[in-house]
Design a binder for these strands. Structure first.
Length: 339
DNA sequence: AACGGCTCCAACCGCACAAAC
DNA sequence: AGTTTGTGCGGTTGGAGCCGT
């Protein structure tokens, strides 16, 4: 049998939407929600297929969508995330509130990709087209390390995007469009992680490793809360970011008191049904990468990401301070160019 | 004014996957 | 367990608008 075609070829309009069609769709969804896209166009009096209606709503009509020029910060975010994730537009868009994946994708293809190409950077690999980044100082190992960092970040961001997606789904109720574009929960996690990454890499220069360890129950499948532990070298970053007012958007005040205390250096994120606790610890003996892998895996990371982690585990500890500097210079160069 | 080339972006297409039946 | 349905995602396309000749 197979499924019936989602779009009937006959009798349905295609192409650009007219203001009248937009108004019909908007009015209907505001009154009835969009529980079933297939039956929606008929009920709304539209000669469109449900898929077309859904696309129009998600990319254009949904309240809160930001249109117009991308800011420099948005450019930076897109370039950075694309370097780490590739063409994972939904994952990238999860970190850009109020932008749609279609818009980000178009913006990348028509603007950012060209700019990178013009400055001699391959928009696919994000490396200079002629020479490998980092080889200028005679140490190709740096390029390798940056590549591994990118893989590491890629897996992490994919996991965060999933959490953000789940959170969005939980927020959405048919007929209620007011919270359709609430900021993704992962944004604060990104800030935290970015700080942690830089601090931990710097800390590794002294420790000979990242200095972050897996907590006692970090790999416990039975535990309702996965725990990730950080060494003291990362605590400053955790405290700085987590204690910011931004975090109030993620955790309610009561919940904050319950799960997060600066004295214990713990950070907890209650993302839907998947609570994550990031716990500072004096234990520096654990395997940081393995801990990350376990933690994210048990919180919806797929096997592909796990394999990425295993690759990184064998080589990340060879990193040095130049990696951080090289990474910083890389992004500075890009941003200087596009600004 | 007319034409052609180019850019940009809204929308379409096909595939994948999870949920529902 | 197999089929159907709904939705998400990324790649691609069509056409409107701009610009130069």
């Amino acid at each position: 049998m197979g499924r019936t075609p989602y779009c009937d070829a006959d009798g349905l309009k295609k192409g650009l939407w007219t203001p009248e069609e937009d108004q019909k769709l908007l009015t209907y969804i505001q009154q009835h929600g969009h529980r079933c896209w297939r039956s929606l166009p008929k009920k709304a009096g539209l000669q469109r297929c449900g898929k077309s209606c859904r696309l129009r709503w998600n990319n254009y009509l949904k309240p809160g969508i930001k249109r117009g020029r991308f800011s420099l910060q948005e450019d930076k975010t897109i370039i950075q995330l694309h370097a780490l994730l590739g063409n994972k537009w939904s994952a990238i868009t999860a970190h850009l509130p109020k932008r749609t994946d279609n818009e980000v994708k178009n913006y990348w293809n028509t603007h950012l990709k060209k700019r990178l190409a013009m400055m001699g950077i391959d928009p696919v690999t994000h490396k200079p087209t002629s020479t490998i980044l980092g080889s200028a100082n005679g140490d190709p190992k740096n390029a390798l390390n940056l590549s591994h960092m990118a893989q590491w970040e890629s897996a992490r961001l994919q996991a965060e995007a999933r959490l953000a997606k789940e959170s969005k789904l939980r927020q959405h109720e048919p007929g209620d469009t007011t919270n359709a574009l609430a900021p993704p929960l992962c944004l604060d996690v990104v800030k935290t992680w970015q700080s942690l990454m830089l601090n931990s890499i710097q800390g590794s220069l002294h420790n000979g490793a990242f200095g972050l360890g897996l907590g006692d129950n970090g790999g416990d499948l039975e535990s309702p809360t996965s725990t990730l532990s950080f060494s003291k070298s990362a605590q400053a970053a955790v405290s700085t970011v987590v204690s910011s007012s931004d975090f109030n958007g993620v955790l309610g005040a009561d919940h904050m008191n319950e799960v997060y205390t600066t004295q214990q250096h713990n950070m907890a994120l209650d993302v839907g049904d998947v609570p994550i606790t990031i716990q500072a610890s004096d234990n520096e003996d654990g395997d940081f990468i393995e801990g990350i892998a376990n933690n994210l895996l048990f919180n919806n990371l797929d096997m592909h990401s796990l394999s990425t982690f295993s690759t990184i585990t064998s080589t990340t500890s060879t990193g040095n301070g130049e990696v951080h500097e090289m990474t910083k210079n890389y992004w500075n160069n890009i941003l200087n160019f596009i600004s």
